[in-house]
Design a protein around this nucleic acid. Structure first.
Length: 440
DNA sequence: CTGGGGATGGGGCCC
DNA sequence: GGGGCCCCATCCCCA
């Protein structure tokens, strides 16, 4: 026998306990504001908290605290209210930040709801545009974006989400005794699970304000290609979105919006009659507008953090195939006919290709002699194949040991670029970790 | 500390 | 629509 009201009643009771600070064993500090909550509830609702608390499970006797600077207290209020009620208060103003916070906290359902909200806003924008032209609309609501909505989420769905996108920072080397180890420090730490961050960050840095945005969600840079990353062997930092999210992305990708859609107060021009012939695709995450749908799809990867093109040689992942190709040619094929040391032009007669780890570069004979020819592994194969850049593109390829190739799930050879393009299941985290990135 | 250069990433656009 | 090229901005390392 099942009492249907039990779940909601239980949730209500928990929410009441939270409001009265009864049995709350977690304190979450968001920009100075303290939120009380129950670790069991947080554990069950957020992949992020699940990871933190599971790592911290030995210290259940002590109250724990977590600090976030990646989003505002208001945003976390929305999140926490959802956790304890199943209702998500979304508005045109907060949806982006809520989605960003949900991404950080690995709350898949919230992300999905936010995307649906944005998508519905786009639909409304489209309808408004139609109405604008039909001139028959007499009672049009002023703005579909600004409305506030409640979405109900399912606890069962949330807890049973099959996703496994735990960020490597959380998943590796954690033996912490305090949640302070997990505090988010945007300016100094790399984060791998922030799909909404990179683009905004870049835009901001263009505006030369890169040190002034510590509390903004846009600061959550999810991917930093740096030596630091390579040194920490954190190859799994390239984990992309779950398939579910990818599907949502794909849905949103195909939404042409003209100039109408604006986020919050950032409403763009409504001069439809002039602009309509030039169809535009508006990014739902930022103000960027592109002419082609494919360009928007490409652009969206900078928000989602999706990097579907891993380098076969070093494991580094790229959001675009041409960037991968460029990287491969530069780093692993030594296509540049320039001596790395003296920068002089070299040919196969005046220089040689040197292999250093997964990297290849050229040195002229003089520099080779200077460095010591015996101390450097000469890549004889490259000598034979890289007669010219064009030939190199066609004929030379990076040969990896079979063992190194074995870990990949699906390998598709792309003969045009002499690359081995892989379609990697992102859930294969363990396999991916075996590939040590060897960047620079 | 600073400037130069390489690597990377994003946008535009052609094929 | 994807692939690829070019251009440019930014990041980061190194001398």
């Amino acid at each position: 026998m099942e009492i249907s009201s039990h779940q909601s009643h239980l949730l209500q009771q928990l929410n009441e306990q939270r409001r009265q600070d009864v049995f709350c064993d977690c304190s979450i500090l968001v920009e100075g504001k303290v939120f009380k909550a129950h670790r069991n509830v947080l554990f069950a609702s957020s992949g992020y908290f699940k990871m933190l608390l599971s790592q911290n499970s030995k210290e259940t006797s002590q109250p724990t605290t977590a600090t976030f600077q990646a989003f505002s207290p208001d945003t976390f209020t929305v999140i926490l209210d959802f956790v304890y009620s199943g209702k998500l208060s979304l508005t045109g103003q907060n949806v982006i930040e809520v989605m960003s916070a949900a991404s950080f906290l690995q709350m898949t359902d919230v992300i999905s709801v936010c995307k649906t909200f944005i998508k519905s806003s786009l639909d409304i924008s489209e309808k408004e545009k139609d109405r604008y032209f039909s001139l028959s609309d007499k009672n049009a609501s002023s703005d579909g974006i600004e409305r506030s909505s409640f979405y109900s989420g399912s606890w069962q769905d949330e807890s049973s989400s099959p996703h496994s996108h735990l960020s490597p920072d959380q998943g590796t080397g954690i033996s912490g005794k305090s949640w302070s180890k997990y505090n988010y420090h945007p300016a100094s730490q790399r984060n791998t699970q922030q799909p909404l961050a990179k683009h905004e960050q870049r835009k901001d840095s263009i505006k030369k304000s890169k040190h002034l945005r510590l509390s903004q969600p846009s600061e959550m840079a999810h991917y930093k290609s740096s030596k630091r990353e390579a040194r920490t062997s954190d190859s799994s930092s390239h984990i992309s979105q779950s398939e579910e999210q990818a599907q949502m992305d794909a849905e949103m990708d195909s939404t042409p919006v003209g100039y109408q859609y604006g986020q919050g107060s950032d409403v763009t021009s409504r001069s439809f009659p002039d602009d309509l012939p030039r169809m535009r695709f508006k990014c739902p995450y930022c103000t960027h507008v592109v002419k082609r749908k494919a360009d928007l799809k490409r652009h969206l990867r900078c928000h989602t953090g999706e990097r579907p093109y891993p380098c076969q040689a070093c494991g580094k992942r790229f959001s675009r195939l041409d960037h991968l190709s460029s990287h491969f040619r530069t780093i692993h094929q030594a296509c540049k006919l320039i001596c790395r040391k003296c920068k002089r032009h070299v040919t196969d007669l005046t220089g040689q290709v040197v292999q250093e780890g997964t990297r290849r570069y050229r040195l002229c004979n003089e520099c080779l002699a200077e460095v010591g020819i015996d101390s450097l592994p000469i890549d004889l194969e490259a000598e034979q194949h890289l007669m010219s850049p064009s030939d190199g593109d066609k004929d030379s390829r990076w040969h990896l040991g079979e063992d190194e190739n074995r870990s990949y799930v699906e390998i598709v050879e792309d003969g045009s670029a002499d690359l081995v393009i892989q379609q990697v299941d992102d859930s294969e985290e363990e396999e991916e970790k075996e590939i040590k990135p060897n960047i620079r």
